[in-house]
Amino acid sequence: MATEPYFVIPAKPGSSTVTITFEGRKIVVPAGISVAAALLAGGVGVFRTSIVSAAPRAPFCMMGVCFECLVEIDGISGRQSCMVPVTDGMAIRRQEGSSALDVSEGAKDDV
């Protein structure tokens, strides 16, 4: 399911790497970068599908604002992949539709 990557991370000789998986596929990436950066350079085109129309989505802001980069990391859904650093052995899955967490609690009584 990998696509041609949108971004590349030029390899630095001697720098350390970690191995993560996306939907079971192994991706070797530089240590210390965000999960979103790793996936974008690892040929992942679609991070999640949207809540209403199940449209494909991918990171937009890379700084924790837009929530387009949500994925499931090690079994926990709704993680902002642009804010989470990669660690060795991390298992990442695409997030289909809405996540388990409901953030709209505070907004319900607004109207």
């Binding site: 971004f7 590349v8 991370i9 970068i33 085109g45 991918a58 937009f60 890379m62 700084m63």
Partner: peptide, 25 residues
């Protein structure tokens, strides 16, 4: 603007600063 393959220029700069990532094409 919601399609994969579209993102903020600021986001791309975060990728550059944070991961040294640059557009592949």
């Amino acid at each position: 603007w919601t399609l994969p393959g579209v993102m903020g220029a600021g986001a791309a700069q975060v990728l550059l600063k944070g991961a040294g990532a640059v557009p592949a094409g």
